[in-house]
Design a protein around this nucleic acid. Sequence first.
DNA 1: GCAAAAGTGTTTTCATTACACCCATGT
DNA 2: ACATGGGTGTAATGAAAACACTTTTGC
Lengths: 229, 229
Amino acid sequence: MPFQNEFYKSAFSVDNVIFGFEGENLKVLLIKRKEEPYRGEWALPGDIVQPEWNLDEGARNVLKQLTGIENVYLEQVHSFGDVNRHPRGRVITIAYYSLIKISDVDIKPASFAEKVEWKDIRSIENLAFDHYEIVHTCLKRLRLNIKLRPIGFELLPEKFTLTELQKLYESILEQDLDKRNFRKKILSMNILRYHNELQTGVAHRPAKLYSFDDEKYEEAKENGFIFEV
Amino acid sequence: MPFQNEFYKSAFSVDNVIFGFEGENLKVLLIKRKEEPYRGEWALPGDIVQPEWNLDEGARNVLKQLTGIENVYLEQVHSFGDVNRHPRGRVITIAYYSLIKISDVDIKPASFAEKVEWKDIRSIENLAFDHYEIVHTCLKRLRLNIKLRPIGFELLPEKFTLTELQKLYESILEQDLDKRNFRKKILSMNILRYHNELQTGVAHRPAKLYSFDDEKYEEAKENGFIFEV
DNA sequence: GCAAAAGTGTTTTCATTACACCCATGT
DNA sequence: ACATGGGTGTAATGAAAACACTTTTGC
């Protein structure tokens, strides 16, 4: 098997830090490895890049295998290639992160994983390989980008409340935000659509439901609007 | 030669966008290729990453071979791995940029290059492979980072005038800055050292010479200072 | 009627912008 | 004396921050 030989000398993989948001917590989809090395340990989902795949396709495939979903926000972050990062040989990995709506997903057990679970970002420790470093590098990048691009919405259901959006920002940025100022800023951007719909089944005044309006955003951009939180 | 076989199936390289600054222009060090593919065309300096090198080392080696210098600011930017980006097989390249002081450098002819030259960033067109895209991806990253970190100094001689610094920012950001406001902002950061030295040999009032003071910067950071231009 | 989160405006504070003239040197 | 870039301060503007109470619903 020539591929095996080659693999253990030098190979490329992609690893995908799949972010989701639930309740008030940012989560990452991790797998428990079924095979050596690092059998039984938690790790990022990833795969060897096949010769006929582009890098982004590799990252999308990882996601699709695990969750069945496609068309998500995906961003390449960094490549990790320390000589000794993989105990079986030289493997350079290209790290991506994806943003998905947890509610859209039914996790599929994957062949290479004993378990697949959403883990709270703050509870993550001790991952296989250099995956801990990868997760935190991606988190740092997410923190930067969420302030500069309207990508937070990718983590929320189609329709969401402003409080949910605020909690999302707070959990990613790890800082509290002022409710009034946050709402003022977001609403003044004029990139949300209000559906004349309210939350139901909550034991308090129901909140208005909004969705991100891509058309409005594109229009605003043409008029010189620059997203920034 | 097993390496050759493997190389032409799948390999990884580093490419280094080496930025320099001279006069009022941002420059990039390019080579004219001596060998196929793309013989005679301008390209980025790069190299195959040897199995025993970390990625950063690969990028530093490229720089060292070409200029003899070490200890420069280096940053990984993005990996490019489109299936067809290299006509001879699958080659994934990891792009870096470096910031160097042109005055420190005596360009060495490299074995793989017919010529090596500093090219004005605005004059660059039609590079080999996907190197044009790589240059512009790195430039975009530099534009972002130069606002958020005190790295502009890496492109200037040890001692520089405030006008030189301003011109540097203007050429990278491609926008004019107000002289008084720029100086006020930079000086108020308190991260420069004034040497009680002036420019000499200029046909106008000589400017004060400053250098970036790393100690002051570290101290300021500890007091919560965040660099931003 | 009580608990729980939604919703809402104004003032203060601070950073950014705009702007024009005198100064020191070489030729 | 003139050309060239160096050096400087203040007022106006606008964005961000601080801050507390009323509203609507379910139980």
